[in-house]
Amino acid sequence: MKALRLTFGALLLVSGIILTLLPGSILLVISGLVLLSYDWPRARGWLKISQKSMAYGAKKLDRFMLMRKLKKF
């Protein structure tokens, strides 16, 4: 089970990185890191870093959209 989880997690991570460079989704990277974080502590750290950066980006985008909406009035 561990080998299957590591293989599938690595496959998701690599395909997510490739699709992030092309127009794609970062969700594959996150799901790959989640699967890898069960067995690798370093993947847990990468997962925390990516979650923090995604939360920061979402807050920044929300702030930008709110300011844009308020300027119209």
Rank of each mutant, 00 (worst) to 15 (best):
L6Y: 00
L19M: 14
G45W: 13
M67F: 09
G9V: 04
S31K: 10
G9D: 02
L27G: 11
R5T: 08
K59L: 15
Q51S: 14
I30W: 09
I30G: 02
I26E: 05
L13D: 00
K71N: 05
L47K: 05
K59T: 04
S37C: 12
A58G: 08
G9H: 05
L36R: 04
T20K: 06
L22K: 04
G57C: 07
G24V: 02
L66N: 10
L33E: 02
F8N: 06
G57P: 01
L27W: 15
R44N: 08
S53M: 13
G45M: 11
L11S: 08
L13C: 02
R42L: 13
W40G: 01
L27H: 13
L66T: 08
A43F: 02
G45D: 06
L35R: 02
K69T: 06
G24H: 00
L36V: 00
I18S: 02
M65V: 06
A58H: 04
L47I: 07
I17N: 08
L33F: 13
R44M: 15
S37G: 05
I49M: 11
Y38T: 09
A43S: 07
M67V: 10
L66H: 05
L35H: 04
A10M: 11
I17S: 12
G57E: 01
L27C: 07
D62E: 10
L47R: 00
K69F: 14
L19A: 11
K2I: 14
P23R: 11
M54D: 02
W46S: 13
P41Y: 08
W46I: 13
L47V: 06
S37E: 07
M1R: 04
K72V: 14
R42N: 03
S37W: 14
R5N: 07
L28D: 11
D62M: 10
V34I: 11
R44K: 15
L12R: 03
S25N: 12
L4W: 09
F8V: 15
R44H: 06
K71W: 12
V34E: 06
K59R: 09
L70M: 15
F73E: 12
I26L: 14
L35P: 01
F64Q: 07
L13M: 12
K52E: 10
R68I: 14
D62P: 03
M65W: 13
I30K: 02
M1F: 13
S53I: 10
G9E: 01
V29A: 00
L13E: 06
L12D: 06
I26W: 00
K48T: 14
K69D: 00
I26F: 11
I49T: 15
G16R: 02
G16M: 01
L27Y: 15
F8C: 12
L19V: 06
L19W: 05
A55N: 05
S50R: 15
L21V: 11
L33Q: 06
P23Q: 08
V34F: 07
